[in-house]
Amino acid sequence: MQGKETKRYEVDLYKPVKEYFTQQGYDVHGEVNECDVAAVRDQELVLIELKLSLSIDLLIQATKRQRLTNEVYVAIPRPKLNFRSKKWKDSCHLVRRLELGLILVSFLENDAQVEIVFHPASFDRKKSMQRSKKKRNAMLTEMEGRLGDYNIGGSCQTKIMTAYKENCIHIACCLLESGPLSPKSLRKMGTGEKTLTILNKNYYGWFDKIQRGIYMISDIGKNELHEFPDLFSYYHEVVRETASAYLDIDDVGGNM
C-alpha cells in the first residue's frame, strides 16, 4: 500500500532555497523585514518569496519586493502537471512578464533539489509583440472580415460567429438565390478569394458538388442558414441586387 504524501508547508522551502544560494556565495537570512528570504553578495540583494503554489497573492508580494531590488524570485514546490501544457506556459509567461525569477523545489525521500526555471530579467515587450505578429495580423484580418458584431464578449459554450462562417453564409445565399455556380462566378459576386477552399473543405456540410467545378447548396445548408436571421437577411438582399450582373453564361443556372 502506498504511503500518504507528506503535507508540505512554506517553511519546508526555506532550507533547500537557502542552501542553493549559500552555495552560490550569498549570505542568506530568513524573514527579513517581512520578506521570506533575503540573500546578499557583494551588495547584490536577492529576495525570494515562498509559497506552495503560484497565486495572485504571491505575485503581488513579489512585485512589491521589486521596490527594493531587481533580483526577485518566487519559489514553489515542483507542481504535478505537464510542463508543456498551455496552463503552465501561460503561468511562466506571466511571471516573466512581471520580470520575476522562478524557482521550483523538488522534495525527494531524504533530500530536496532546487531548479531555477529562469532568472529575473527585463521583459522585452517589443520583441514579444514581434513574435506574435502573425497572431496580431490574424486578429485584424478576422475583425475586418466580419460584417458586424454578432457575438457577446465572455460567452462560453456558445456558437461564435467568425469571418469564416460569415463567408460561408454569403456563399450559401448566392447559391440559394442563383442556383448552382462555379467558384469563379461566386468570387465575381463578392464571396472572396477563399471561396474555392471553403467549398472544397465544406466544414459545415452546406455545399454539394454536383459536377466538376459546379456547386449547389445542400439541404443542411438551407436549414441551418435560418439560424442566422440577421446575416441571412443582409446577404440575401445583397445577392438579389447583384446576382444577375455577375453570373457566367456557362454556369448551371436556374433558381432553386
Rank of each mutant, 00 (worst) to 15 (best):
L13D: 00
V28H: 04
L176M: 15
V74P: 01
G253W: 07
I60D: 10
G25T: 01
R212L: 09
R8D: 00
Q211M: 14
L140G: 10
I48M: 06
D42Y: 07
I160Y: 09
M1N: 03
F118K: 06
T141D: 10
S185D: 07
I160F: 06
K15T: 13
T162D: 08
Y14L: 07
S178A: 14
V72Y: 00
V72I: 05
S128Q: 14
F118P: 02
K18Q: 08
N167R: 12
C92N: 02
H226V: 15
N202R: 03
L59V: 03
T158E: 12
D248C: 14
R136H: 13
C156N: 08
A121K: 08
N137F: 08
L98S: 05
G3K: 15
I220G: 11
I48P: 02
D251S: 05
E177C: 15
L247S: 09
F228R: 04
I48R: 03
A38W: 01
K133E: 08
P183A: 06
S53V: 03
N200I: 11
C35Y: 11
A245W: 05
N167C: 09
R146V: 08
L176G: 10
A243I: 10
G253T: 07
I76L: 04
K80H: 14
E193P: 07
R97E: 11
T195Q: 08
D219R: 10
R84W: 07
I214V: 10
G148V: 12
G221F: 02
V252A: 04
Q211D: 06
K86Q: 14
I249D: 14
M1D: 02
K209Y: 04
A112S: 12
L231M: 11
C35A: 14
S182C: 05
R84Y: 07
D12C: 01
P16L: 07
V74D: 03
Y234I: 12
C173K: 08
L175K: 07
G30V: 09
K201N: 15
S178G: 15
I103Y: 04
K80V: 04
L45V: 06
K126D: 08
I60F: 15
Q157Y: 15
C168H: 00
S128D: 10
A245R: 10
V72F: 01
K222V: 10
K165H: 09
Q130H: 09
E193N: 14
Q61S: 08
V37Q: 04
K89A: 11
K86D: 15
Q2H: 00
